[in-house]
Write a protein that binds this DNA or RNA. Structure first.
Lengths: 195, 195, 195, 195
DNA sequence: AATGAATGAGCTTTCATTCAT
DNA sequence: TATGAATGAAAGCTCATTCAT
């Protein structure tokens, strides 16, 4: 992989980052390529040299954002039992959602009209993301630290609550926001609390 | 209020219903008036006889849907303690979300660009809706039946989880879907479980 | 002509008056029938019972306004020489323009696309209106009171100046407006001043 | 300023010229972008690459036309006294109105609904245009060559008469038209004639 | 590789006009 | 007579997409 390829990859990376911002802020439909280009100081047309169209760009954005997010959670190597580790995961996930991707919810609400392969890739992304949490939950349950009514239900509730956190946390200021995020994490821990 | 007015009201009601469907399915941006009109077997222009524009129509849809939903929950007169009543509320709310308004989440994700008064009305709607749950939770806590880390956090988690339920319940068939909904309700009860 | 016909005439008269206001304020293109109807507390559709369409209504408005205006000038029976009479005509014309039909200029700027017969009627109106002034000017010239380079040019200048008077007189307050109108009339008298 | 910019400027210039034609012929409301585009052999949408909307295009048209017109009059360096110079100005102004911008009157009758800044720019344009005439009139008065009842009234009358000249001159043929224009200019000179 | 330009389809909105009642 | 309702054509505007340079 030569210098040329590296340069191209870097270019793509920056485009996707910009796209993730715009799509995240406005959602797929309301986002427009002009704004993505503007953020990169290039023209709309240039994007087509790297991406076949809006769909592909949005998919790449979702993919990158999803992967980054997942990896940051995967790297979070907290020592201790399942409870400590889950608590750390929740806190980190909420922090990322509120601070960095306040509109990720919109970003993941992809149009139903997308081709199957794009949808499949996104589903796969979510599955991998979900696995980070699911593993800890499952270990906690096995170790008797946690108890769940239903694993799927618990995980859905966790994800849903975290992804909507920005909707009511964003408008809070520094300390109050921190406290709200902590309270949410603590609250969600109850979902897997032993009886 | 004469026959004419009644007829107009009925007409408006049907338009709003159609709009709620379309906006709910596609979200505000992706929805278009052509589709709303088509569902009513009229032409686009006719809608403007009843509504000043897309915004107003969407607001009406959100408002109607929100009010109906809240009222159905308010009417739910379950006997018993806070736990029984909350459980019934959760189950009903989830059922409505999954069966009748699978895309309500999208509908409530209103554009940031809306005028303040529209946003204010929507916020008010949500507040009233929230109150139905908040009251029961508060009573349960007072009665020692429930314990919450933080009232706001608990309620946010409840709402978020329920509103996203369709995303993973819709594709399930009859019995499996019922079971999933029950599991979710039971899971969410843990959020307020006493220690 | 029975009571029915009289009632209809009265109805037509009021519609035309409202139309003259609206067309005068906005000009032909920008005016819309909804506003005309609203001013009369009726619905758009009703207007079609009396007029075949927008064109006919506008023509009637122009015609009525033109006729009224002309008749008021014709009735102005000032004693004295041509100078006194012309001065009175100018002053009255300007007053009507500024106070009552500040946008008459817009009203008379009819679209080029109108059918020939409508245009012909309007031209005839203007001719009759013009005649009121032309007669006095001609008499003044014959009597040696006036001198004109060219009768047509003088009359065109008179009309143009008077019809645009509202553009710079409307924003003036009571006395100042009166003075401006007087000055304009005096100024225009110079157009026919003897050498 | 590179070749690209020059090309863009030229493009803009041609668009504005086309717009001035269309707006001038039909007035603001009746004019439509389709027609402007058609005259340039492009599609409607292309205009938006250069102008934000109908308002901006119309303003540019008014501005360009107004500036050009004023500059042509300013460059008119006639020798002689105030009378000779005013006579030349009138003649040139009338010629431009009749021959080149027969519907400028319509163009300058901007909608009341325009934003204040657009209206302000147009007013400024008119002020500068007016100044060309006002200066000569004032000099003539100072030199005792002219006498006016009221400077403002005289100038308003001059402008109004000239701007409406096309309404009755356009339909005249070659020589007759020339003569009519001359007569108008001579007639208007009387407005400032000494007593 | 990137740009400026253009396109065309699709959207929201307006409004003269028609018509059953 | 008058109304409420609906229509359809046309307007202004947006934007993903294409393409010559």
């Amino acid at each position: 992989m030569g210098r040329v390829q590296r340069k191209r990859d870097e270019r793509v990376r920056r485009i996707v980052a910009a796209a993730a911002e715009v799509f995240g802020e406005r959602g797929y439909e309301a986002a427009n390529l002009e704004d993505v280009a503007e953020r990169l100081d290039v023209t709309k047309g240039s994007l087509y040299y790297y991406f076949a169209g809006k769909d592909e760009l949005a998919t790449a954005a979702v993919e990158t954002l999803g992967t980054d997010w997942t990896e940051r959670l995967e790297k979070l190597d907290t020592p201790g039992g399942a409870a400590e580790r889950l608590r750390a995961l929740l806190r980190e996930h909420i922090a990322i959602a509120v601070r960095e991707y306040p509109a990720a919810l919109r970003l993941f609400l992809v149009p139903d009209s997308w081709p199957d392969d794009l949808r499949a890739r996104i589903r796969e992304l979510r599955r991998r993301h979900d696995l980070v949490f699911r593993r800890v939950v499952r270990e906690g349950v096995a170790a008797g630290e946690f108890a769940v009514v239903d694993e799927d239900a618990a995980l859905q509730a966790l994800h849903a609550s975290m992804s909507q956190a920005p909707l009511w946390c964003s408008h809070l200021a520094g300390d109050a926001q921190d406290r709200a995020m902590d309270h949410l994490a603590d609250t969600l821990m109850k979902l897997v609390a032993p009886d």
